[in-house]
C-alpha cells in the first residue's frame, strides 16, 4: 500500500523534474514543475476527436493501458512492506501485465490505419521485446542469489549476504534505468521531442489520441517512470527503517529524473538501426550480474 501511494506521489513530479532539468541545462526559463500535470488536467477537460477508421479497440486501448500500469504499481513492494499483490513469481506477472497494456497500445495504433502509426507500433513491439530478456535475467539472477521468487522477498534479502550485493544493485540500476527508458521511449532510444513522425516511436503511436484518452496515456507514462524508479529504490533500501527509506525513495526518484533530464540534454539519440544492438547489450549486462551471482554463491568450482 505504501509503495502505491509513494509511486503516485513520485509520478506526479517525475516528468516535471525531467523537463525542468532540461530547461535549466539548456539555459531556458522553461515551464514549471507542475506543467505536465496541468497538461493532463487540461486534456481531461477536453473533448475528443476520433478517426473515422478506428473501431472500439481504439477507444478501450488507453483504458487498458492505464489499468495495466495501475496493476503493475500494485505489485511493486517498498522495502519490508509488501506490495498490495505479492506472491512467488510476481515479477513474471508484473512483466506480463505491462505486456498486456503494450499489446493494446500497439493495436490501437494499428487501428487508425495510418501510414505512420504502424511504424511506431512496430518499433515499440520490437524494442520492448529486445529489452524483455534483460529484465528477466536480472530478476532470475537475484532470485538465484536470494533463493526467493517474489519482488518483496528478493529485495528484502538482497543485502543480507555480503556487501558485494551493492555493486550488483548498481549494475542492476543501470539495466533498470535503461529498461525504463526503452519502455517509456525516451533518449537514447527515442526522442520524445522529435518533430518528424518518421523518427518517432511512442509519440507517433498516439498521434490520433486526444482528450481523456491522451491524458490517460500521458499519466500512464509518468507513473511508469515512477514504477521503475521504485524498483531501483528497492534495490538499495533492503530492510532499513521507514525514516530513512522514504526520504531515500524520493532522493533516488529525484536523481533518476535529473539523470534522465541531463541525458536528454547532452546526448543525441542513437541511430534507429543501432538501437537493437544497444538494447541487447543490456542483456549482456544482466548476464554479468548472473555470473557475479554464481561467483558469490560459489557455484564455479
Amino acid at each position: 500500500m505504501l509503495s502505491f501511494i509513494l509511486i503516485i506521489i513520485a509520478g506526479l513530479f517525475f516528468s516535471g523534474i525531467i523537463s525542468r532539468t532540461k530547461s535549466i541545462a539548456s539555459g531556458r526559463k522553461g515551464p514549471g514543475i507542475f506543467q505536465p500535470l496541468k497538461d493532463v488536467v487540461r486534456l481531461f477537460k477536453k473533448g475528443a476527436i476520433y478517426s473515422e477508421t478506428t473501431s472500439f479497440i481504439f477507444q478501450i486501448a488507453p483504458t487498458i493501458y492505464f489499468a495495466s500500469i495501475i496493476m503493475a504499481m500494485l505489485i511493486v513492494p517498498f522495502g519490508q512492506s509488501k506490495g498490495i499483490i505479492s506472491f512467488n513469481g510476481d515479477f513474471v506477472f508484473f512483466a506480463y501485465v505491462l505486456a498486456l497494456g503494450k499489446f493494446f497500445n500497439i493495436i490501437s495504433a494499428m487501428d487508425t490505419g495510418s501510414s505512420f502509426e504502424g511504424m511506431g507500433a512496430s518499433r515499440e513491439a520490437l524494442y520492448s521485446m529486445l529489452a524483455e530478456p534483460a529484465f528477466f535475467i536480472l530478476m532470475g539472477s537475484f532470485s538465484l542469489l536470494t533463493g526467493h521468487t517474489s519482488f518483496q522477498e528478493i529485495f528484502a534479502a538482497l543485502h543480507l549476504g555480503s556487501t558485494i550485493s551493492y555493486a550488483l544493485a548498481t549494475l542492476a540500476t543501470f539495466v533498470l534505468v535503461m529498461v525504463a527508458m526503452i519502455e517509456n521511449s525516451r533518449m537514447p532510444i527515442d526522442d520524445p521531442k522529435t518533430h518528424l513522425e518518421l523518427t518517432m516511436i511512442h509519440e507517433v503511436m498516439i498521434l490520433d489520441n486526444s482528450g481523456f484518452d491522451l491524458g490517460l496515456i500521458l499519466t500512464a507514462g509518468y507513473l511508469k517512470f515512477a514504477v521503475y524508479g521504485a524498483l531501483i529504490v528497492n534495490l538499495f533500501i533492503g530492510i532499513v527503517g521507514y525514516q530513512y527509506s522514504i526520504p531515500l525513495f524520493f532522493a533516488i526518484q529525484f536523481s533518476m529524473a535529473v539523470t534522465i533530464g541531463l541525458v536528454e540534454s547532452f546526448m543525441a539519440r542513437f541511430r534507429m538501426n543501432h538501437n537493437a544492438q544497444f538494447i541487447l547489450v543490456l542483456s549482456s549486462v544482466s548476464f554479468l550480474i548472473f555470473f557475479v551471482v554464481m561467483l558469490i554463491l560459489g557455484k564455479f568450482i
Binding site: A95, A99, M110, T112, M129, P133, F136, G140
Partner: peptide, 28 residues
C-alpha cells in the same frame, strides 16, 4: 537462465506477431 530469457523473448515476439496479424487483418 538462458531458457528463462528465451521464454521471455518468446513472449515478447508473440506480442509482435499477434499485434501484426490482428492489426493487419482486422484493423485500419
Amino acid at each position: 537462465i538462458l531458457s528463462f530469457a528465451g521464454l521471455s523473448i518468446i513472449g515478447g515476439l508473440s506480442i509482435l506477431t499477434f499485434t501484426k496479424t490482428f492489426g493487419t487483418i482486422f484493423l485500419g
